[in-house]
Amino acid sequence: MTDRTTYTYTVLRYVHDVLTGEFVNVGVVLFLPSSGTVKFKTRSTIGRLKGVFPDIDRKAFVRAMHAVRRALQGVARNEGPPDLFTDVQDAATIARKALPLDDSSLQWSPSGSGVTADPGQALERIYARFVSRYDCPPRHRRSDEDIWRPVRRKLEEKNLAQRLQEKSIHGEVDDIIFKHAWKNGQWHVYEPLSFDLADADGIKVKAREWLGHLAAVVAGGDAERFKPHFIVGAPTDPKLTDAYRTALAILERAPNSPEVFEETELDTFVARIEDEVRAHDAEQDSRRHDGSRSY
């Protein structure tokens, strides 16, 4: 059976502002009391700190981290197996030999503990949990404008983009401003909605907000006649598909019977706009032609 040994660990924190207490983890020290072994891993670059704290002094941080690593190397060399006269120590005690407790921006966390058969693997696991897991840049989530951009390009190709204008629909209770609209007896209004959000609740809330907007404008029956059309972007996280489908159902049941197109239906959506605009123009031309002939 593989021998397992107890270890303790402490996390090195970069505290940017002692008043707010905001910090980012930048390193880990692991200590095995039975053998006196000290292992550590620290951030070697400024990483995501610049994004979290834009005013961080990069040179000062790099110098400080270099000094901590050098001091930890010295502590690791000097530690050894405990004897009868050695006080029981934990990782935080060992780490403070390299970086004493003071009011600087680098601080040690209280010690944690565990049991492992592979101390090196344990160090990597703890580092990944507390430090490197936050290194991935935040994933770009598409905005409403991102969803509209390919629509605009296709409308421009068909010389139709200029036909759409901003329109404010005034109701008895509320108003809604649509950036893309045109009139053919009633107003046709088009709204891009990105549901590429972080969680299911956010997706449903956004759909419910639009349900509320439309209901507030339609309430009282004083609003101009208008037909809503939504083109929607799906979440990239497949775990949010159910919430997305619920959001579509909420939109489809909103007042004025909105038409909802998914971004995969982009060509159909643009073709619908084109057909309606061309039919309107043809009807107007026919009326003008008939009027001139009757004269």
Score class of each variant (00 low, 15 high):
residue 24 V to S: 14
residue 259 E to M: 13
residue 51 G to R: 13
residue 60 A to I: 10
residue 225 R to T: 09
residue 95 A to N: 06
residue 36 G to E: 03
residue 6 T to Y: 10
residue 128 A to E: 10
residue 127 Y to K: 01
residue 293 R to K: 15
residue 150 P to V: 03
residue 229 H to Y: 13
residue 222 D to K: 14
residue 279 A to G: 08
residue 29 V to G: 03
residue 105 S to A: 15
residue 281 D to V: 09
residue 220 G to L: 05
residue 161 A to K: 08
residue 276 E to C: 05
residue 136 C to G: 10
residue 286 S to K: 14
residue 107 Q to M: 10
residue 114 G to V: 07
residue 210 W to D: 02
residue 165 Q to W: 00
residue 57 D to P: 04
residue 51 G to I: 01
residue 16 H to M: 06
residue 159 N to F: 11
residue 236 T to W: 00
residue 48 R to I: 13
residue 79 E to W: 01
residue 18 V to H: 15
residue 30 L to V: 10
residue 225 R to I: 00
residue 162 Q to V: 13
residue 151 V to E: 01
residue 266 L to A: 05
residue 242 D to G: 08
residue 148 W to C: 06
residue 19 L to I: 14
residue 40 F to S: 06
residue 215 A to T: 15
residue 282 A to P: 00
residue 17 D to M: 03
residue 121 Q to I: 00
residue 7 Y to P: 02
residue 265 E to A: 13
residue 217 V to S: 05
residue 190 Y to P: 02
residue 78 N to H: 05
residue 110 P to D: 09
residue 77 R to Q: 11
residue 67 A to V: 07
residue 26 V to H: 08
residue 219 A to S: 14
residue 295 Y to M: 15
residue 201 D to K: 14
residue 123 L to H: 01
residue 289 H to V: 06
residue 113 S to H: 11
residue 218 V to L: 01
residue 131 V to A: 04
residue 101 L to C: 11
residue 258 P to N: 04
residue 194 S to W: 04
residue 290 D to P: 00
residue 121 Q to H: 09
residue 15 V to Q: 10
residue 275 D to H: 13
residue 74 G to I: 07
residue 278 R to M: 11
residue 147 I to L: 04
residue 57 D to A: 10
residue 65 M to Q: 15
residue 56 I to T: 10
residue 137 P to L: 13
residue 253 R to Y: 07
residue 232 V to S: 02
residue 113 S to Q: 13
residue 156 E to G: 07
residue 182 W to P: 01
residue 176 I to L: 08
residue 159 N to M: 10
residue 256 N to R: 15
